[in-house]
């Protein structure tokens, strides 16, 4: 697996600019607030155990990592680590296809 081939990123600020360009009747500030609200809504949903389902984009859910015993790297003492939830994203069909298609274009 090589994941060094792509070296360019779109950051949040660029995302806000792209949306603002297409919604020119809205003030940039409003688009910025809206994007922040959307990310906050998504974080809130996940941190209260709620799934997110966006057709054509994908779904976010929580995966449970069971408790395990680990070691304190300094002392070598064994410590028990509690179970925890981690966010998981499953891309939808349209996103998967568009991403894979970009490989053939490059």
């Amino acid at each position: 697996m090589t994941d060094e081939s792509i070296d360019r990123s779109m950051m949040k600020s660029e995302l806000i600019e792209r949306i603002a360009r297409k919604q020119s009747h809205l003030a940039y500030k409003d688009v910025e607030l809206a994007v922040k609200s959307l990310l906050e809504q998504m974080s809130n949903a996940l941190s209260s155990g709620e799934r997110i389902e966006i057709r054509g984009f994908g779904s976010f859910s929580l995966h449970f990592r069971p408790p395990r015993s680990g070691r304190n790297p300094k002392t070598g003492d064994s410590v028990s680590l509690p179970g925890k939830h981690v966010p998981h994203f499953k891309p939808g069909k349209e996103l998967r296809e568009r991403v894979n298609h970009s490989l053939k274009k490059s």
Partner: peptide
Amino acid sequence: LVELFFEEVRSALGDAYHVKLSGF
């Protein structure tokens, strides 16, 4: 706005950009 948000992320990924949304 909600449509555009997901479409812009999808299209950046489809144009071979990683998408980095700090805090998320």
